[in-house]
Each structure stands twice: as C-alpha cells, then as structure tokens.
Design a protein around this nucleic acid. Structure first.
Lengths: 176, 176
DNA sequence: TGTGTCATGTAACTGGTTACATGATTCT
DNA sequence: AGAATCATGTAACCAGTTACATGACACA
C-alpha cells in the first residue's frame, strides 16, 4: 500500500485532480514510484471514501479536485515515519543465481549486456541531476536530491559490481 | 513470473518434492527470492500441467518427487538469458521523498534508524560470506558468490548513502 | 468538422501473501 | 500416547498491470 501514500504526498503539496496527479507522478515520481492511471483513480476514490482526502471542487468534464484532509496528513506522517523491512527481491539477481545453468560464455555475455544497460541508466540519472535546478530551501527538492543520490549510487554500484563479476569470470574460468 | 523459474532452477540441480524445494528456498534462495509454501505448491502443479516438470516418484504421505523436463530446461535457459527492465521500485525510497512532509528532526531520526538497520543487514551478509565454503569449481557457488557480492555492495552503498544524507542534512539545516 | 487533450471509470488477469485445513509417518 | 515433522492442498485477499470504454471540451 504505497501508491496511496505517494498520492497523499503529492496532494499534501498541492490539491489536484486525478489527471493532475498522474502528470505529477510522471514528472516527479517517475523513477521512484510509477503509477498507472487505472490504479490511481481507484485509489483516489478509496482515499476519499476513507476521509483521507476530499473533493474540494468540481469542474468541466467531471473533473474532481481533491485536497488532503487532516486525517490524511496524519496517515501520511505515520507511514513516512514507520520503518519497514523490505526483502530486496530483484528478479535480475535471481537471474544471476541461475546463470549456473547456461554455458559460461553465455553467462559472460549476459553480464556484458547488463553492464551496457546499467551504464545507460546511470547516464539518464546524471542527466536529471544536471538538468534540475535544486533549491535547498524547498524541502521537496532537498529530499528529492537525496533520493536521486540513492539512484546514482545504486547504478554506479551496479556498474562496478558487473565489472568485478566479469573480471572474476575471466580470471578463473570454470573447468571445461 | 519469477518463482516458476526459481523452482525450475532448483529442480535443474536435483529432483525433489515441494517440501524439499521449500527448504532449499529457505537455505539457498532466502535472500534472493523467498517463496511461500502455498505459492510453491500451486506453481509446481502448474509447471507439471505444462510439462516443464514431471512427477518421477511418489512416496509416503502423498509425496510427489518432481524432476525438470527438457522443455523445462529450455524455458529456464530462455528466461535466464532474456534481459528485463526492472523499474527499481523501493517503498523506502518513496519514504525518503516524502520526508519533506515531516519536521527536519524527525526526518533526521528516520535516517539514523535506517542506518542502524542497514548496518545490521550488512553484518548478516558478511556472516554468510564468512560461513560459506566457496567451491569455485561448482557453478552454483560461483554465481551464488557473485549474487552475494551484489548484496554486500548494495548494503555498503546504502550505509554510505545514509551517512552522506545525514551530513548533508546537518551541514545545511533548512530555514526555520 | 474532426483531432487532440482532458477526464474518469470498470473488468479481467497476474503474482504474491495470509490463513485455513487435512492427514500420514516417525520418534520418544 | 503424543509431539514433531513430513507433506499437500484451497480460499480469500491485496497491489498492480493491461485493456476496454466513454464522453466533454478546445482549437485549428
């Protein structure tokens, strides 16, 4: 149940319709918590039913503008401050584990491919970093920058790890 | 659909019953791809229905021993070598993003707590590294070691990142 | 007039979790 | 006899995805 808190978070900065929020998801939260249209609309209705948000205005084409309520703010705060154990379940890591089942050369190629893909991801994030005008006084930017740093370090770590793995595979080839 | 491939992977090393596999999941794949009992049994039946595995023996208490088939091996191979884009969706990262909604002191505390938790995770993995007797000649160990290295580097990266974030939060406190 | 964008919703499906349920065998 | 373990399954639920469906409004 994270989408609901992402939505609450966006609404805590400014009210908006489902449609607005979708675009905000795409711009600000795209790399952190992507949302689908269908899921967002259902969740907004649920949140409204539970009183965590409310319709503050209606406009053309059935537009409903939502705002966060006090109950919503309390729930957001509660969730943000509640630590959570996350099992770190990455299908790509499972793939590595199962590389034992293919020929060493193919396994090596798999790492080479991943390395290229992750370098591209890293470049994307670096572009985001460079393109954004960070305002330290704005808490949104402040923590956004920290979240981005996580992404940057994660991708760098991946790239380094893949290089390490390739070296390891090369220097001690498995017995033929 | 990763559990199915994890199961295929385990069966490709040795045949076994659902019950056997469950224990193998807990020991070898616990940190990579945890499985629940209920899911595994349903998946084994599905895999058998599709001919990717087959019952090779039945024993006491309704025990069914499965083995991977050629079709199963082909499917495993296909999946392992198919690269996949993974959106890296971590609820903890979303939490960071939403820290903008709580007081700076509380946000700082959240990082301190995470730092402690991640240091503990790192210690766990280091214990696994030390406790295992790695046999480079065994492909399972070979790639298992590489997967573990990912976990180690990931946790180290997290710890470093949290220290970086704390410094950043301290050196440039937000305007009161 | 017709295309693009604004705007909301529902249905079917997938992968996963929790809880419930049953019973055979082994060991003390 | 009773507890622990072996062994399998089902049902209800949750979060998320893809696809389908509808219609109002704005602008060229």
């Amino acid at each position: 149940m994270s989408l609901r808190h992402a939505a609450l978070g966006l609404l805590s900065r400014a009210p908006g319709s489902g449609y607005d929020l979708l675009r905000r998801f795409d711009t600000t939260l795209a790399h952190v918590w992507p949302a689908t249209q269908s899921q967002l609309y259902t969740e907004l209705n649920r949140l409204a039913a539970e009183g965590l948000i409310e319709v503050v205005a209606t406009g053309a084409r059935g537009r409903k503008e939502y705002a966060i309520t006090d109950a919503g703010r309390a729930e957001l705060r509660r969730w943000v401050l509640t630590p959570e154990e996350v099992p770190l379940r990455d299908p790509r890591l499972l793939r590595v584990f199962l590389l034992a089942d293919v020929e060493p050369e193919r396994a090596r190629e798999a790492f080479v491919d991943r390395l290229a893909a992750d370098r591209a991801h890293l470049a994307d994030l670096e572009a985001v970093l460079a393109a954004t005008d960070w305002d330290e006084a704005d808490p949104g930017d402040r923590y956004g920058r920290i979240a981005l740093e996580f992404g940057l370090r994660f991708r760098r770590m991946e790239v380094e790890w893949e290089r390490w793995a390739l070296e390891r595979l090369d220097e001690a080839p498995p017995p033929a």
